[in-house]
Nucleic acid binder design. Structure first.
Length: 257
DNA sequence: AACACACCCAACCGCATCCTT
DNA sequence: GAAGGATGCGGTTGGGTGTGT
């Protein structure tokens, strides 16, 4: 007896696999006419038998204007390495700092080119020892599910192994503090008083003058990259335990300390 | 030439978060 | 505040292509 899946009866069969040039054309002209968004309806209205996600991804990664394709420049590569050291696998954030590059492209580039370069001895799935590494990967997935920052876990990105606690004030002084806990998985934190610094986390979450904010930092890149980046991993304004954001690098700092 | 293996990358999947009602 | 849909993100997959034997 033939079993017919319920989903195949109720939903029209969606196309998968590679996009054809004519599909690209349809999607491109549709988005240029109607604008981005409402991806779920794009397939119906444009006649493309693709899921909304698929359309969105194709537009974002391939058809969107100002997409830069081709080889990564040395500068872009350096930037990816530095950002990855800071942020871990936060591809969309990294890509956001590299004009014309998409998160998918950055991720692929990292996995195929830079991962080997930055983590020598990194083994592939065919490696007999792969199962051991799969466990590490599972731990990482677990961390993700727990919504922990990769920065809090030094194994995730080849970052520095030791995490220490620092306190920095924006009037130019920098001082180290002892870690609150002896466990290395404790995040580094950073306290910034914004009296003397016009600063923001992002448009939605301003740090107001006179307020303190707590940030999570990976120790090693701190001194190396403070000239160019400050990472806001999470924060709570005024010590109130209120808003917590975990998804943004939000400001480029040009000052040297 | 034929095969096997490795590499690359576009696209998919599952889950989390955001937004709207 | 809850529910459901839309969107975004990161991990993974699989087909195409390159390279070695």
């Amino acid at each position: 007896m033939e079993v017919i899946k319920r989903s195949s009866v109720l939903k029209p069969q969606l196309k998968k696999n590679l996009w054809k040039p004519e599909e690209d054309l349809i999607l491109k002209s549709y988005v240029e006419t109607h604008g981005e968004g409402n991806w779920a309806t794009v397939s119906q209205r444009s006649g493309l038998m693709r899921g909304g996600k698929s359309c969105r991804l194709r537009w974002k990664n391939y058809l969107r204007p100002n997409i830069k394709r081709g080889e990564m420049s040395k500068e872009e590569e350096d930037l990816i390495i530095r950002m990855h050291k800071l942020l871990g696998n936060r591809w969309s954030l990294i890509a956001g700092r590299i004009p014309g590059r998409t998160d998918n492209e950055v991720k692929n580039y990292w996995n195929t080119h830079l991962n080997k370069k930055c983590i020598p001895g990194k083994r592939k799935a065919t490696d007999p020892d792969h199962h051991h590494h799969q466990h590490e990967e599972n731990d990482e997935n677990l961390n993700k599910k727990k919504k922990l920052s990769p920065l809090c876990h030094s194994e995730s990105s080849g970052s520095a192994d030791l995490i220490t606690t620092k306190s920095i004030s924006l009037d130019g002084r920098k001082e180290e503090k002892e870690a609150e806990s002896s466990t290395v998985t404790d995040p580094t934190w950073m306290e910034i008083n914004t009296d003397s610094f016009n600063y923001y986390i992002d448009d939605q979450y301003p740090i107001l003058p006179g307020k303190n904010a707590t940030f999570v930092f990976d120790d090693e890149p701190l001194t190396a990259y403070l000239d160019s980046f400050i990472l806001f991993e999470s924060f709570e304004c005024d010590g109130g335990g209120g808003a917590v954001r975990t998804d943004a690098i939000n400001h480029v700092v040009t000052n040297n300390y």
